[in-house]
Amino acid sequence: MSATKPIVHVSNVFKYFGQLAALNNVSLDIYPGEKVVIIGPSGSGKSTLLRSINRLEEVDRGQIVVDGMDLYAKENDINAIRMELGMVFQSFNLFPHKTVMQNLTMAPIRLKKIPRPQAEDNARRLLKKVGILEKAGVYPTMLSGGQQQRVAIARALAMNPRVMLFDEPTSALDPEMIGEVLDVMVTLAREGMTMICVTHEMGFAREVADRVVFMDQGQILEVGTPEHFFEAPEHPRAKKFMEQIL
């Protein structure tokens, strides 16, 4: 894997919230096609790390490079870089004033200048993929949480991103809806999408993750395969965390 260039390169990143170091010298390389799951207790900095990859959080020090483009270089347009990164949020954040279809076509039409019929065809294909084609014409508030999250994934995919970022995509869902969202994510993983997921769903991690990254107190403490974490986490805090969530 080291022969290819990483698609996301995070090196020596620091981020402070006041005195607190939310990210404390974090480095991580993600290679094309890789699925990485980031775990850790709340406040460990895992969401902050994910959000700094598309610069929703500004880091204080360090370098983040996506697809060869430095996020903080003046010559790079952050909006163009963000188009390469699909983001899925814990709280879905669909646009409530737009229909499901419009949620999916808005960015491609406006930002990629894709003709409307083509954008809508693509949107229908994606809605079919996440199993929610029949809801194309309704407003997001008419959907269940699981349906909204699947639409949100489809919306991110509509921009044809190189990497998908998932920020606790199932944490706000009722238990019976978690499965339908994870199914979509597994399908996506099988298709070879590069994915970085902050999640506590260890079943999902075991099924698709190439690497699991354990974070605590703003630092990456351990990196390994899912099996490694299930069987023999080395770091005491990782061990304790795994005991708590399993």
Partner: peptide, 17 residues
């Protein structure tokens, strides 16, 4: 909600859009 801004920005919309 702040999440609306974050969702739009993460899709690639600039501040004005």
């Amino acid at each position: 909600d702040k999440g609306q801004t974050e969702a739009a920005r993460s899709l690639g919309f600039n501040r004005r859009q």
